[in-house]
Design a protein around this nucleic acid. Structure first.
Lengths: 233, 233
DNA sequence: GCTCAAATGCTAACTTCTTTGCAGTTGGTT
DNA sequence: AACCAACTGCAAAGAAGTTAGCATTTGAGC
């Protein structure tokens, strides 16, 4: 079966770099550690620069004036965010919160600019990274427009799945899952029980067990109407 | 009043280029003309390259397997699309259809690569363009998640508005407007009549008249919960 | 200036999602 | 070991959006 672009993880920025470039980027950045739940950045922060996840994970989300939060993405080690603030004079667009003990490498715009001179190939790397993020973001928009809450949830679960014993798990409360697909907790709960009915997942406390990840992937693929476009490594 | 990023138009690619760069890009491309309604590209086309709108307009949209079409954006002269196919090995993501007599400048990936060597500054230009598109795409996703159909429609109307006599007009059938905000025609019609009730717009045949664009912008701004982030020229 | 396909405006039944509220469960903390 | 805050699961009312259908209006093309 072909691997559809299910993971919402953008980036894969560091992973595909040649060794020397990676060294240079790492040397240019400051490593900062965050506790579980700590705020890494807030929407509106004016700190142009690139942030690379080294350890742990980062939940990118936004909250509207009515206190409704919605999550956009979970960044994993090797992913990066903030590229946009390097080239545009804009503040940070999303809130970023550490999930688990997390380490972030921060490269300021100044240092990054110098880095670009030393490593011209980095520009192309960044271009590819932005292009991929744009492509994934358009796909996400598409999903939001066309797919039912249940399919969106299933797709999100595939993206969050981690190996666990025989099968996989996606960790997070139902409220968090609801935020990830931009619905209410009730709808997320219903969607989840539909997937349980189908025998695709089992619910647990702050977790969803996925006995056969492949089956879930197939189920999602059969319901994602547009042909997937990006191949994921 | 501050100018919120209401226009869904991405790009502004050519407009901000230094003259020499612009000349070089134009020299590298082939100009192709399309009739109103002609297909410029289809989702899945494998033609890596950059397409720049020179004259007319282009509607970017996608259709799912059930024949439901949704429009993503209307590209105007100076905007460009296809950047992603330059750096990623992916097919074209969206269908593109000419709106009115339209001219497109196509630059193949090969020619563009050579162009990058001759005009290194073009890379930064492209980085900024991708960054802006990503930022706008994230905003669009946000709107889709949080805003009601009525506000989304109003925002779209502001983006489509063209000067017309005293005020402005947004041209397009209600079906097309519905596709632009990803709802049914009925909902689009209801949303439209709400805006009429508010005295913000007047309906017409294949057009919506906007007597006071500023008033509509204010109305939208008051209902867009997240602080706008990108300034639009 | 007539014709007709396309577009608008409306209604009604139905589905989906949200909000509110509550009862029962879970697992970290004292 | 007991407590309690957080989480799950469920129900009911209502809001929002969808589909289907029909009568009327519009304007482009003959």
């Amino acid at each position: 079966m072909s691997e559809p672009p299910l993971s919402p993880a953008l980036g894969r920025f560091i992973g595909q770099m040649p060794f020397a470039m990676r060294e240079a980027v790492e040397a240019a950045g400051t490593l900062i550690r965050y506790r579980n739940g700590a705020t890494i950045q807030q929407r509106g922060d004016r700190k142009p620069g690139l942030s690379i996840v080294v350890e742990g994970a980062v939940r990118m989300s936004a909250m509207d004036s009515e206190g409704e939060r919605s999550t956009y993405i979970l960044m994993r080690p090797g992913d990066c965010f903030g590229e946009m603030t390097l080239f545009l004079d804009i503040p940070r667009t999303l809130d970023a919160v550490a999930v688990g003990e997390t380490a972030i490498r921060e490269v300021s715009r100044e240092r990054f600019t110098r880095l670009l001179d030393a490593q011209p190939a980095l520009r192309d790397h960044l271009l590819a990274s932005l292009a991929r993020q744009l492509s994934l973001s358009l796909e996400q928009l598409d999903d939001q427009r066309r797919l039912s809450a249940t399919v969106r949830l299933a797709k999100t679960l595939v993206g969050l799945a981690e190996p666990d014993g025989e099968g996989h798990v996606a960790r997070g409360s139902q409220t968090e899952l609801a935020e990830a697909i931009a619905t209410s907790r009730v709808t997320a709960g219903k969607a989840l029980s539909e997937l349980v009915q189908e025998g695709l997942v089992e619910t647990a406390y702050r977790a969803v067990r996925i006995p056969h990840l492949g089956a879930l992937k197939n189920w999602v693929a059969a319901r994602s109407f547009l042909t997937p476009v990006i191949k994921r490594d």
